Simulated scan of single mutants.
Amino acid sequence: MKALVYTGPKKAEVLECKEPIKSDGKIKIDIKYCGVCGSDIGIFLGTHPRAKAPLILGHEFLGIVAENGRLFKKGDRVVAYPLISCHHCLACRNGNEHVCNTLKLIGIDTDGGMAQTIYVDENILFKVPEQVSDKAAVTVEPLAVLVHALHMVDMHVLDTAVISGAGPIGLLCGLMLKHAGADKVFISDVAEKRLAIAEQLNLTPVNLKKENLLEVVKKATDNEGCDVFFECSGAADPAMQMSEITRVRGRICIVAVHKAPHEVNLRDINFKEQTVVGTRVYTKDEFGKAVNLTAELEKDLEKIVTHIVPLSESNKVFDIIANLDNGSAKVVVDCQK
């Protein structure tokens, strides 16, 4: 079978690989689409702390069940919950398997879904609603990240929200905030084409090349600041500014994984009695909720998928993502082409 394989720093190659071997409790999936995640970029660059070459990339995959199993039948369209937990550490014993002390993921610690086929445990699969398009269904995994983030930050109806970063996670964050009843949602970035997608999602874009985010938010909130701030960029400047942009007793949610320590204004957090919440992936229940949400959000989810690249040319996906001028948001690999 063909697969996109990480073969070393800044090297991803489409290779002919051995078909995966069936084992007890696993079922064969023919992969349709697989999304490219920020963690895949880190693997490609050689900076991911766990991923080792050679590795088949991809944990955001949608596929068709290729054989009858215990829970699913041939032809079912499914997505996979990709987290691998130990089930023994304190976090796991307390029901927090998603923050397991030794958390692993398919596509990072084991071969993933940017391939023509894969075998996975049936108990990690979720059936996709029949009416939902493939293009929308492939966004389930990153959508689950935002379902979890909104649960963690205690989102309120009619909140004014600010999102730093209009990449796929930032755009999905805005979509979820609107769905949850937020009043104003500002989203900042320097990539104009991504901000144009944000506008299509009924978000208020802030182009940092032309506007000052603090001034925009203060003007819109009688100089008070936003109710909730979502840091989705992973950059240094928003880490320093987020407490200033957020109001007294406001909430700050760290969604992006920051690759290096960044300065934070702890005095602001003290004096304004702000709450800062960290988030990491999602629970299995939240993943299931994201599956169901695709039926309600289908048309907007499709807007976030900007590029579908055939598997045969998938070695180009990281160049596509790196080029901000081409308007890429969510890039997806079509594993049947």
Rank of each mutant, 00 (worst) to 15 (best):
A3D: 06
K10L: 15
K10P: 05
V14C: 11
C17Y: 07
E19L: 12
I29H: 08
D30I: 03
D30A: 12
K32D: 10
Y33E: 06
G35Q: 05
G35P: 02
G38S: 00
S39K: 09
I41Q: 14
I41A: 06
I41N: 02
I43L: 08
G46W: 11
T47K: 12
K52A: 08
H59K: 01
E60V: 07
A66R: 05
G69A: 11
K74W: 06
G75L: 02
R77F: 06
C86H: 01
L90Y: 14
L90R: 14
A91I: 07
C92T: 07
C92K: 01
G95W: 11
N96Y: 02
V99N: 03
L103T: 09
I106T: 15
I106S: 10
G107R: 04
D111V: 00
A137V: 10
E141G: 01
A144H: 02
L146I: 13
M152E: 15
D154W: 10
D154L: 10
H156M: 15
A161Y: 05
G165A: 12
I169M: 11
L172T: 07
G174N: 11
V185M: 09
K193S: 12
L195D: 00
Q200K: 15
L201G: 02
L201A: 04
L203V: 08
V206S: 00
N207V: 05
N207W: 06
L208V: 13
E211Y: 08
N212E: 12
N212R: 04
L214V: 01
V216C: 03
V217G: 03
A220W: 03
T221Q: 02
N223T: 07
E224F: 14
C226T: 13
C226K: 06
D227E: 08
D227N: 13
V228K: 10
F229W: 02
F229D: 03
E231T: 10
A235C: 09
M240S: 08
Q241T: 09
I245Q: 13
V257W: 14
H258M: 09
K259L: 12
E263L: 14
R267D: 11
D268R: 14
N270A: 14
E273T: 12
V281H: 13
V281I: 14
Y282I: 10
Y282K: 01
A290I: 04
N292R: 11
L297A: 05
E298L: 02
D300P: 04
E302N: 04
E302I: 05
V305F: 05
T306M: 09
P310V: 13
V317D: 02
D325W: 06
V331P: 09
V331I: 12
D334Q: 09
Q336E: 04
